[in-house]
Every structure is written in structure tokens, then in C-alpha cells.
Design a protein around this nucleic acid. Structure first.
Lengths: 217, 217
DNA sequence: ATTTTTGCAATACAGTTGCAAGGTAAAGGG
DNA sequence: CCCTTTACCTTGCAACTGTATTGCAAAAAT
């Protein structure tokens, strides 16, 4: 075989450039030539690795979810062997919030893809399976909550709600409506609902009480 | 003056066509000519009422939020004079979920604009003020919850969480991940958290306890 | 050494885009 | 009557889009 090149590496390089363009100017601005320019390669090369624009888009979408997955895995592994479910979920979900500029960029891309797939149901399958797996895992963890084993919390709807807050908070933070701190407070409040108040070292000790009041923004 | 025409009416007509295009094919497909075709007018006329594409976009965005506003107002007015805050909020927020095809279409447009403004901060101001007002109102209503007057729920973060679930549920329903029923159950669960279990005819009576267990999906 | 495969570049092309410019027709004011 | 204003249409244009085609150099296979 002639001049061999790592195909995946090149495609990843290009997808990376795509996401930079998408994060800065939106998916509308993602064209072969823009992406090529951002990746500092020729437009022909982009075309060599992705025969159509849609193929490039689908690949980038896969990269996004894969990136989130590794982000989650890293955060979870940093927690040690058998972390309590609430801490596990908090670590996972916190990782998905756009709290720093890197994750803000990723979040913008994800949001753009959300709108993109909303109109292209064929492409949405990947995202669908993705969030379904996440929800199943979350429900699994919630099932280990004392409130769940006591039958006072149904894991499935609770997981739905938890992931919904996450998504909603992410979007609002991206839009600049909420500060990251506000989002974290809301996330913890939601976890309180599912797991009960975590730190038992409080006098009043009830969800929603005594937590710090951040500026609303 | 010569041939007088209701300017606002024409602009509304065009914006309506824009939203039809956006709902079906995404904001990327919103071009002068596409919108003109959808509105069954000449491209020149569109240009006559909107000098630039961005001007058209901004107007359409305003129409979206105005439409939501009237939707909310109608739902609230249908509730009579002084409804209990929980019922008021439920009616309001339910109106914002994409539960029928009409609201699904609006939701797709709103989602598209969300991604659009995420990259064009200058345009985002309208949305920003919009949700800020909504959050303030929601927080106001939550403040009337017994849990809030008892100091066990902080209205501001609670409002943040509530609107976040709403947004997240809407997106997931749009993406086909959750059924409308699932979304409604999750919304009610969130209201339970804030207002306590509604029917007080329960022994245990704790937020999040004993609520009905709906089929997941 | 020649053939074939592969990586990549350059170009061509048809279609679409936003926008500007110029046109016509009608309606009201002078 | 004319003249100005308004509504609207048509055309044109430069910039951009995705994609197909062609070309070419290098490297492995033969």
C-alpha cells in the first residue's frame, strides 16, 4: 500500500476544526471551505475524508457525544471504586454543564446539533440512543437512593426530571441567563429532591433550606 | 399618501412564513426567497418590509416570544380571578411544552433561535429580558407556596430549577426522547418539590413521596 | 521497473445566497 | 393637472455553497 495515513486521526482533526467553527459562528457557518481553513488544510483534503457535508456533520456529532462520554468516564473514575450514587451523579452531571469556556464551546456545538437534528430526524438516532443510555444509567443510580428503595421516588421519572434540569440549566447558562453558580445550586436542589438532604449536619435539615443564596443573574 | 398598507400585518404575514420554513427545515433554510415562496409573495416584497435578513430574523424572534406571552396570558385568564399559585404555574408552563403539533412547530423554531442567539449575543438581549421576566413572575408565585413562607424553599433557585426542567423537557420531547405524558409527570413532580404534595390526604406527606408511578415513556 | 493504489490539491460548475438598483403602477396632496 | 410618496416587482451581481472531475506525486506491490 502507498503512503499510509491514519484515517481516524485526520477525520478527528477535521471534526475538531468543524466544532471550532460551529462553536464560534454556528452550524450555518460550517462549510467545507470554512472547516478546511480552520483546520489549516486544503478544501480538497476535507473532501477526501468526507465525501459529503452531511457525512462530516454526522461524524462530528458522533465526536461530540463521544467527547461527553469520555468526560463523564474520567470524572467517574476520579471518584474511586464504589462512590455513593449521589456523588457519582453529581460528578457526572456537573461535567456536562458549561461551566468553563471549553465546555461552553462544546455546549454551543451540542445545542446547534440539537436544533440541527430536530429538523433532520434521520440524523437524530445517534443522539437518541445516547441520551437513552444516559437516562438508564441515571435511573439505575437513583434506584439506589434510600428514597427510592423506600418506594418514595420512582427512578425512571426522577431520572427524566434530573436530566431535564441538566439540559435546561445548560441552555440557560449558555444563553447567559444564569450564572454557573446558580446552575449548580439548582442541580444540587434537584439531587436533594431525589436523595434527600445530603449533609445531615444541619438543624433545620430539609431540602431547600439554609443553602446559600447566590445572586440570581 | 399613496396606497396605504398595514405594515405590521404584512410583516406578521412574512414572519409567519419564516416560522413555517424554520419549523420544517431549520433556520439555515430561512432565506429571502424561501420565505417569500412560503408566504406566496415576491422576494422583492419581503425585501421591502425587511431591509436585511437579520432584521427579519430579529422580528421573527420577537414574534415567537410574543406568541408565547399571549399563550400564557390566555391560559392564565382562563383560570379565573385569583388562582392558587401552583395551579397558575402549572397552567402557564404546560402551555409552553410542545404537546401538540402547533406547539411542536413553535418549539422547533424556538430551539433554532436558541442556537442562533447562542452565537449572536447581540440578538440574544430580547430572549434574555423575556426569560428574566418569566423567572421573576415564577419566583413570585413560588414565594406564595407554604414551603416558601416556611422558609424551606428559596423562591429564586426554585424558579430557576422549575424553568430549567421546563426547557429541558421541551427539548427532550421535541427530540422524541420523551413522550408528552412523561414530560407532564416530570413537571408535576417538580411542582411537588416546590409546593409539597398537592392532595394533603396522605400520612407520610413529604415532597417527592408517594406520587403516582406512571409508566416511563 | 512498472503498475497500482493512495493522499491530496486544484479547478470547474451549477445552484443559492443577500443585497442593491432600477423599474412600474397606484394613490393621494398640491 | 402634476408631482411626490408608497408599494411592489424584476433584474443583476458578487460571493458563496456542495460536489464532481481531473491531475499529480509518492509509495507500496508486482
Amino acid at each position: 500500500m502507498p503512503k499510509r495515513v491514519d484515517h481516524r486521526e485526520r477525520r478527528a482533526l477535521i471534526a475538531d476544526a468543524l466544532m471550532r467553527v460551529a462553536a464560534e459562528q454556528g452550524l450555518e457557518a460550517v462549510s467545507l471551505r470554512h472547516v478546511a481553513a480552520a483546520a489549516q488544510v486544503s478544501a480538497g483534503m476535507v473532501q477526501h475524508y468526507f465525501r459529503t457535508r452531511d457525512e462530516m456533520m454526522v461524524f462530528a456529532l458522533a465526536v461530540v457525544s463521544e467527547r461527553n462520554e469520555t468526560r463523564i468516564r474520567r470524572a467517574v473514575e476520579a471518584l474511586g471504586a464504589t462512590p455513593p450514587p449521589r456523588a457519582l451523579l453529581r460528578a457526572m452531571l456537573t461535567e456536562l454543564l458549561p461551566l468553563d469556556e471549553e465546555r461552553r464551546a462544546d455546549g454551543r456545538v451540542a445545542l446547534a446539533f440539537l436544533a440541527y437534528t430536530a429538523v433532520r430526524p434521520a440524523v437524530a438516532a445517534a443522539l437518541h440512543a445516547d441520551t437513552a443510555a444516559l437516562r438508564a444509567f441515571v435511573a439505575d443510580q437513583i434506584a439506589r437512593s434510600p428514597l427510592a428503595t423506600a418506594g418514595r421516588v420512582d427512578p425512571e421519572p426522577a431520572a427524566v426530571g434530573l436530566l431535564a434540569v441538566l439540559e435546561g440549566l445548560g441552555i440557560h447558562v449558555l444563553g447567559g441567563h444564569y450564572s454557573p453558580e446558580t446552575a449548580l445550586v439548582a442541580l444540587d436542589a434537584q439531587l436533594d429532591l431525589i436523595f434527600g438532604r445530603e449533609p445531615p449536619a444541619e438543624t433545620v435539615s430539609r431540602a431547600g433550606s439554609g443553602r446559600p443564596r447566590p445572586a440570581p443573574r
